[in-house]
Design a protein around this nucleic acid. Structure first.
Lengths: 98, 98
DNA sequence: ATACTACTTGCGCGATTGCGCAACTACTGA
DNA sequence: TCAGTAGTTGCGCAATCGCGCAAGTAGTAT
């Protein structure tokens, strides 16, 4: 079995994930990544409509929460959804928000 | 069919729901409501460990996001999870945060 | 009406957040 | 090495958030 974490620590982690999703631009990023597979920072920044440094910060928030992952390809950095469970989460979110 | 909302408005609603979930105490409230059915403000405030006015504010946030609903029973106000889809959302959140 | 319990609302404060801007690092190609 | 392109990081500011506290509303009971 996995180590039984105190319920409070688990809630803190859940809250951190929710906080990372609590921004329209970051949700927009996840929509692009959901059907685009991998995208560069510049690509995302153009499509979402914000400056590159701002997008980089948003992506850092998503990555810190374990929602996206990144890899470098030459001079560009490609971001992707970290896990399929993230798609379920975004779907559930949209259903409640619907 | 339902009116096709602009994607941006849908994202704003999703972000609002996520923001409402982005607090450990509010997640704790949802856990209590998930297996307790209906709970009063005082009850929740005792179990979560915060003052009554603070709990009332947290519940107002959750209600504004459509996550919980309330009804009055005499002098007490009982809160409950608004919809089953909220349970799916919290579950998906915990799975990603796991 | 009075007193009491249950809850909500307004206010102010410290902490966090999102953003633009500038500066910095990382990689490519000549 | 010297540009040039792609991202990241640091800083400051306005806006928002969570909280405690005080005051107000709603319902019960005497």
């Amino acid at each position: 079995m996995t180590t039984a974490l105190p319920a409070e620590a688990q809630r803190d982690r859940s809250a951190a994930v929710a906080r990372a999703l609590a921004d329209p631009k970051r949700l927009c990023v996840l929509e692009f990544l959901a059907d685009g597979g991998e995208r560069s920072v510049g690509d995302l920044s153009r499509n979402v409509g914000c400056q590159v440094p701002n997008m980089s910060q948003h992506l850092a928030v998503l990555r810190a929460a374990g929602i996206v992952a990144s890899r470098r390809d030459g001079s560009t950095v490609l971001y992707r959804i970290a896990d399929r469970s993230v798609l379920d989460l975004v779907g559930a979110l949209q259903r409640v928000a619907g």
